[in-house]
Design a protein around this nucleic acid. Structure first.
Lengths: 230, 230
DNA sequence: ACCTGAACACCGTTCAAGT
DNA sequence: ACCTGAACACCGTTCAAGT
């Protein structure tokens, strides 16, 4: 019958060779499904069909793995080119909006970015692009420098707020809980003790996240253009 | 000799009665010394001379304990009264600066605030005060509502950046590492690939944190006043 | 009702031993 | 050099059993 020999035995999907890249791949799959908290050394190892100790050959520790994940995801943001048209401000707002949306797509990503100064190649390319757009604005050099920091701070912070929407998990989205919870708390407050909070109903809970973000980005750019750096 | 009986035997500092308050007290002591990560149920229990299971009588879980800690710390911020003088803008900036400085004093606090919508009494009092000041500004009602959110987002984010300074731990402050690290990374970058980053030296790393914060707060307020809410 | 010892189901990281 | 089983030192939370 069939010749015996180095037959390709049917196996589970071929165990991928261990490498820094394959480790980040596996981590990213966990991240996409269940957020950064689910990216444990043990679970990443399990996904790669090995033990946790094996990962330490390619990665110093979990923090370094997180840094690698962040830079990989930073690479997913499309950087605008001059060919895209639009003035610096339009292109900048598009870029920042994209970044916030990415940060909101992975639970735990935005929070993790506060703990790290992103210096990976993709993060640097992003900073470079950001600074290029700001350089076109005509603002002072010091304003450009501080602006890039402030904008990075804002998109990271805004990203943490968006994440609630992406909730999956066992129980079906908590989005309702959170929003209703906040609105409800404000609504149920005694007006004599909290006159301003009560009085600002319904404005406090009005507006879609996207609308509020666009407003905030315009606030930042208008403010930066209007504020002296000394 | 001495009368025997209900003598006060020399003991270690009297074991305090367990209560939600004593638990938060113990947690806060750990927090002040080593940051939020060091506030584990097991260590809090140990500080109170009991086992971790005992805490669950007074606190649903660790998350609830963190919420209680946050509100307790929110109570430490001095709220300005009309007697303080100054217009709304001055008083607002003072309040926000104080909040950022508090958030920077406890490692992990600011990051934790992103995970929770603070609805404790002290946090609400802070929001009420903030809205009161914004109400004096003459901006639209919608702008007031969105502004309080944006300002809260900013102070929390700014708080996370400050924390590095408060580093203690075994190894003596990493402050140098971080700052030098960032400056060094930027300085060592190939100018042909990163012309804007390289070209913006030394502005990128210029300015004390306080100076940058004051600029950012003015950016936010100027921007808010200059940006329509629709 | 309040408290707790012991257990359960996890973590990150190290290290000696294998190939 | 690369890989790994087993261990170490931790976690949060639960639960049956005590008072």
């Amino acid at each position: 019958m069939a010749v015996t020999g180095p037959v390709s035995r049917r196996e589970r999907p071929a165990k991928p060779a261990l490498s820094q890249e394959s480790i980040v791949d596996a981590a990213l799959a966990l991240m996409a499904a269940d957020g950064l908290d689910s990216v444990t050394m043990r679970r990443v190892a399990q996904a790669l069909d090995t033990g946790p100790a094996s990962l330490y050959v390619y990665v110093r520790n979990r923090d370094e793995l997180v840094v690698l994940i962040i830079d990989r995801l930073a690479g997913e943001i499309r950087l605008p080119t001059p060919a895209d048209g639009g003035d610096w401000r339009e292109r900048l707002i598009t870029l920042l909006t994209d970044a916030i949306s990415l940060l909101g797509r992975y639970r735990g990503l935005a929070v993790a970015m506060f703990a790290t100064v992103p210096t990976g190649p993709n993060a640097l390319a992003l900073t470079e692009t950001l600074l290029g757009l700001l350089a076109e604005s005509g603002m002072s050099r010091q304003a450009q420098a501080w602006a890039v920091d402030l904008l990075a701070l804002y998109i990271t912070a805004a990203g943490t707020e968006r994440v609630i929407n992406a909730e999956r998990g066992p129980e079906p989205l908590r989005e309702h809980e959170v929003y209703a919870g906040a609105a409800e708390t404000f609504a149920g407050l005694p007006p004599d003790r909290y006159p301003h909070i009560s009085g600002l109903h319904p404005e406090l809970t009005l507006g879609e996240p996207e609308e509020r973000t666009q407003w905030a980005l315009n606030v930042l750019l208008n403010g930066i253009l209007a504020t002296a750096t000394n």
